[in-house]
Amino acid sequence: MGSLGEQPQVAEDCMGLLQLLSDGTVVRSKSIDLITQQIPLANHKSNVLFKDSIYHKPNNLHLRLYKPASASNRSAASLLPVVVFFHGGGFCFGSRTWPHFHNFCLTLASSLHALVVSPDYRLAPEHRLPAAFEDAEAALTWLRDQAVSGEGDHWFEGGPGVDFDRVYVLGDSSGGNIAHHLAFRFGSGSTELSPVRVRGYVLLGPFFGGVERTKSEDGPSEALLSLDLLDK
Rank of each mutant, 00 (worst) to 15 (best):
P58R: 11
K45M: 02
R185C: 03
A132L: 04
E212P: 03
D218F: 11
G200N: 02
V196Y: 02
L143S: 00
S111P: 00
G189E: 12
P160K: 12
L21C: 04
M15A: 12
T191C: 04
H102T: 00
G175P: 03
H113P: 00
P220I: 12
L106Y: 02
L49N: 09
K51E: 11
R197Y: 00
A179F: 05
V202S: 07
V211G: 01
D145E: 14
K67E: 00
N59E: 06
L80V: 07
N73H: 08
H154G: 13
F85M: 14
L115S: 05
S149Q: 13
D120C: 07
N177F: 12
T25V: 13
G24V: 10
D23N: 15
G171Y: 02
R197L: 03
D163C: 05
Y168M: 09
S95I: 11
A42D: 09
D120E: 13
H113Q: 15
H62V: 04
K51C: 08
V10D: 00
E222L: 13
N177W: 04
R185A: 03
I35E: 07
R128F: 00
L170I: 14
T107D: 03
S174R: 04
L170K: 04
F91E: 12
S194N: 10
E151C: 14
D218A: 13
L63F: 08
H127G: 03
V211M: 10
M1A: 12
P195G: 06
P99K: 10
L18S: 02
G5K: 11
Y121F: 14
L41H: 10
I39R: 07
P195E: 12
V84T: 08
N47M: 04
N177Q: 11
F104Y: 14
Q37A: 11
A42R: 09
G205Q: 13
V117N: 03
N73M: 09
E217H: 12
G176V: 15
L49R: 10
S226P: 02
S173W: 04
L230E: 03
G161S: 11
I35H: 05
H180Y: 14
P99Y: 03
D52L: 11
G200F: 06
K67Y: 05
D120T: 14
S75P: 01
D33Y: 10
P125Q: 14
N47F: 06
E134Y: 08
K232I: 14
H102E: 03
L229D: 02
A114N: 10
S22G: 01
F85K: 13
S111A: 08
F85C: 10
S190W: 02
H87I: 14
P160Y: 07
L20I: 15
E126F: 09
S221F: 05
L123F: 04
V196D: 00
H154D: 15
G5E: 03
Q9L: 13
E126V: 14
T214V: 06
A138Y: 06
G2N: 09
A131S: 15
F186R: 00
L65W: 09
V202W: 12
N177S: 07
V169Q: 11
E126C: 07
S110F: 05
A71W: 12
Q38R: 08
F85I: 15
R213N: 05
V27K: 08
I35T: 12
R213K: 15
R197I: 06
D52I: 09
A179D: 02
V83L: 15
G88S: 09
P130M: 09
L225I: 13
D145N: 10
F186D: 03
G16A: 13
P206V: 11
G176T: 13
V196P: 01
